[in-house]
């Protein structure tokens, strides 16, 4: 549920994602091969794929290239002191595509190449979305500080 919550826009969408993911899991349980990985990883991948399908339905991924790389400066103390629900709300305020790329890269540990393959975008577009996410989050976290 926590995985679906990170990608969904709200709790109800997270519940839908989880339901669809479990139905797919039960229907394709015979295809699971424990020699290729553990069950938790397999189920996590199903949930992430279902989440990305939901995001694709409500957003459009345009091809964009990153010109300059700007590393945002964010005070970690602010994040540590901020509630998890508030941080999740900040992440959900990102544009859908940027939101998906940020969660995939920063939280679930996907590479830009893997993100490009999952979302059907180029690595440059994935980097652009990550940069946009960082800039937006920096602004919002700075706003919380003030």
């Amino acid at each position: 549920m926590a995985i679906a919550m990170r990608y969904a826009a709200d709790t109800h969408e997270a519940a839908d994602i989880l339901t669809q993911a479990f139905v797919k899991m039960f229907r394709s349980i015979h295809t699971f091969d424990n020699t290729k990985g553990n069950f938790h990883g397999w189920l996590k991948r199903i949930i992430i794929n279902e989440s990305l399908d939901h995001i694709k339905q409500r957003s459009r991924f345009t091809s964009l290239e990153l010109d300059t790389v700007e590393e945002p400066v964010v005070n970690n103390d602010i994040i540590e002191k901020t509630d998890a629900a508030a941080i999740l709300e900040l992440v959900r305020q990102l544009p859908p595509a940027t939101h998906a790329v940020f969660v995939l890269y920063a939280i679930d540990g996907y590479t830009h190449k893997e993100i490009g393959g999952q979302l059907g975008i180029s690595e440059g577009t994935s980097k652009w979305h990550l940069s946009e996410a960082r800039k937006i989050l920096q602004q919002k976290i700075t706003a919380i500080k003030n």
Binding site: I79, T82, A106
Partner: peptide, 17 residues
């Protein structure tokens, strides 16, 4: 990943369901 992103990931893992 930047340090604050790791902090965000840790916070989201603690997120109550």
């Amino acid at each position: 990943t930047t340090p604050y992103e790791k902090l965000i990931a840790a916070k989201l893992e603690e997120m109550p369901v």
